[in-house]
Design a protein around this nucleic acid. Sequence first.
DNA 1: ATATGTAATGTAATAACATAACATACGAGA
DNA 2: TCTCGTATGTTATGTTATTACATTACATAT
Lengths: 131, 131
Amino acid sequence: MIESKLTKNQSMVHTCLTQENGPMTAYAILDALREKGFRAPLQVYRALEKLTELKLVHRLESMSAFVACQHGTCEHSGAAVFAICDTCGTVAEFAAADVSKSLESHVKENGFVLKKTTIELRGECRQCYAV
Amino acid sequence: MIESKLTKNQSMVHTCLTQENGPMTAYAILDALREKGFRAPLQVYRALEKLTELKLVHRLESMSAFVACQHGTCEHSGAAVFAICDTCGTVAEFAAADVSKSLESHVKENGFVLKKTTIELRGECRQCYAV
DNA sequence: ATATGTAATGTAATAACATAACATACGAGA
DNA sequence: TCTCGTATGTTATGTTATTACATTACATAT
Ligand SMILES: [Zn+2]
Ligand SMILES: [Zn+2]
Ligand SMILES: [Zn+2]
Ligand SMILES: [Zn+2]
């Protein structure tokens, strides 16, 4: 398991995010971990940086928040897509290989070397819409 | 022309972004417009809010910056895609109808009501890669 | 055991991005 | 004129992220 390689702080942040089962801001994580000794934003940001690198955690750019990968360690075929409910805040993560392929081909026409893809969908989930 | 409906502040911000021909943060815009009387962030943010609503300007979530729509007033068929060069900062905006279609169908399977799509590609443009 | 090197962590200060709250101006219609 | 909505101005505050530097923990070499 990749998690076994995590340091103490990284592990605490990852556990926190996993238990939350939804997106948290860095400062929300900090507050949640104060009782366990966290004192400063940087402790959270450093852990998040590593976790993101390992793809155990994803950053949601459109809400400046972080969420645990819903596939454990994320080996999607293609980029991850996030559907974010603006009403209840839940996030659904899925892979869309066709989308990634299409974007790559669009971009290669222009000689653009793609390194990272961000796809975030904002809207309302089924449950919230039903209400 | 839609621009004729803009207020003074909105117009100044739009002109600023258009002349820059690339992304600017709100505070960079503020600094650029200080000589023309801007004093506070809110003046910029209010203008940006309206311009974004009119799709004359797009917000780049992954860099907390704003860029003038490269299609004037943006009526893409489907969501806009931004290819951002991490080296030189240039942004290429294009439409990808197939991508939008695919994302919509993915999402509708789950009863998610899509309201806004963010697609941002980070990497290196042809010029920078050649060097 | 001691020294050295390196990765991780701790801490404070500050930068960068964004909004709240309230005051004022000003034109379009009743 | 009066009133209402929209735009603007101003100050303060809130939120997110990074810089800079000090310290600790741990592995390895002498
Ligand atoms: Zn994932
Ligand atoms: Zn919901
Ligand atoms: Zn556009
Ligand atoms: Zn470039």
